[in-house]
Lab assay of single mutants.
Amino acid sequence: LKKVVALYDYMPMNANDLQLRKGDEYFILEESNLPWWRARDKNGQEGYIPSNYVTEAE
């Protein structure tokens, strides 16, 4: 899975979204639905995130 790091905080707009915290790492599960990607956080929560809020992890 592709790993990304959040560049900004993101508060979910609806139940399908995943909250982002700046500096945290996330795994990308699906990239087909631009600009929204399906992601999983370190706690196993899954949801959609804005792809322009993250960058690929080193």
Rank of each mutant, 00 (worst) to 15 (best):
L1G: 09
L1C: 10
L1D: 05
L1S: 06
L1R: 07
L1M: 11
K2C: 07
K2N: 04
K2H: 07
K2R: 14
K2L: 07
K2S: 04
K2P: 05
K3W: 08
K3H: 06
K3I: 13
K3G: 03
K3Y: 06
K3Q: 06
V4A: 04
V4C: 06
V4R: 03
V5I: 14
V5L: 08
V5S: 04
V5R: 08
V5M: 08
V5N: 04
V5K: 07
V5W: 10
V5D: 01
A6M: 01
A6I: 02
A6R: 00
A6N: 00
L7M: 09
L7Y: 03
L7S: 04
L7G: 02
L7D: 03
Y8K: 12
Y8M: 12
Y8G: 05
Y8I: 08
D9V: 02
D9G: 03
D9L: 02
D9K: 02
D9C: 05
D9W: 03
D9R: 02
D9P: 04
Y10C: 04
Y10L: 05
Y10A: 03
Y10R: 07
M11T: 13
M11W: 14
M11H: 12
P12I: 04
P12E: 03
P12A: 06
P12M: 03
P12S: 06
M13E: 12
M13K: 14
M13V: 15
M13Y: 08
M13I: 14
M13H: 11
M13C: 14
N14D: 10
N14Q: 10
N14A: 11
N14E: 07
N14I: 05
A15W: 11
A15V: 12
A15H: 12
N16D: 13
D17F: 15
D17M: 14
D17P: 02
D17V: 07
D17C: 14
D17G: 15
L18F: 04
L18A: 01
L18W: 01
L18M: 06
L18T: 01
L18G: 01
L18K: 01
L18V: 03
L18S: 01
L18H: 01
Q19F: 07
Q19M: 12
Q19D: 04
Q19P: 14
L20S: 00
L20K: 00
L20M: 08
L20C: 02
L20T: 02
L20A: 01
R21C: 11
R21H: 13
R21T: 14
R21D: 05
K22G: 04
G23Q: 03
G23S: 04
G23W: 05
G23F: 04
G23D: 06
G23M: 03
D24C: 12
D24V: 08
D24R: 06
D24W: 13
D24E: 15
E25C: 12
E25F: 15
E25R: 05
E25P: 08
Y26W: 01
Y26D: 00
Y26P: 00
Y26A: 02
Y26S: 00
Y26E: 00
Y26T: 00
F27M: 09
I28R: 02
I28V: 09
I28M: 03
I28P: 01
L29E: 03
L29T: 06
L29K: 03
L29G: 02
L29Y: 06
E30G: 07
E30I: 06
E30A: 08
E30Y: 10
E30N: 08
E31I: 11
E31L: 09
E31M: 14
E31Y: 11
E31K: 10
S32W: 09
S32F: 09
S32A: 09
S32I: 08
S32M: 08
N33R: 09
N33Q: 10
N33P: 14
L34V: 09
L34F: 15
L34T: 14
L34D: 15
L34G: 15
L34I: 07
L34N: 15
P35I: 15
P35R: 15
P35Q: 15
W36A: 10
W36L: 14
W36E: 09
W36S: 11
W36N: 12
W37I: 12
W37R: 04
W37S: 05
W37L: 13
W37T: 06
W37G: 02
W37H: 04
W37D: 02
W37E: 03
R38C: 10
R38G: 04
R38A: 06
R38L: 15
R38S: 07
R38Q: 07
R38M: 11
A39M: 04
A39T: 02
A39Y: 01
A39D: 01
A39Q: 00
A39S: 03
R40I: 12
R40A: 08
R40H: 04
R40K: 09
R40T: 06
D41S: 08
D41H: 03
D41Q: 02
D41C: 04
K42M: 14
K42T: 09
K42V: 10
K42D: 05
K42W: 06
N43M: 12
N43P: 02
N43C: 13
N43R: 08
N43E: 12
G44K: 04
G44C: 07
G44N: 06
G44D: 05
Q45V: 13
Q45N: 15
Q45D: 10
Q45Y: 12
Q45W: 08
E46C: 06
E46R: 03
E46G: 02
G47H: 02
G47W: 01
G47R: 01
Y48H: 05
Y48K: 05
I49D: 00
I49Y: 01
P50F: 08
S51Q: 10
S51M: 11
S51D: 03
S51W: 14
S51I: 09
N52L: 09
N52Q: 10
N52R: 10
N52D: 13
N52C: 15
N52V: 09
Y53A: 09
Y53G: 05
Y53L: 09
Y53I: 05
Y53R: 05
Y53D: 02
V54C: 03
V54I: 07
V54G: 01
V54L: 05
T55Y: 10
T55L: 10
T55N: 06
T55A: 13
T55M: 12
E56Y: 13
E56G: 10
E56H: 10
A57S: 12
A57Q: 11
A57D: 09
A57M: 13
E58S: 14
E58F: 13
E58P: 14
E58M: 14
E58C: 13
E58Y: 13
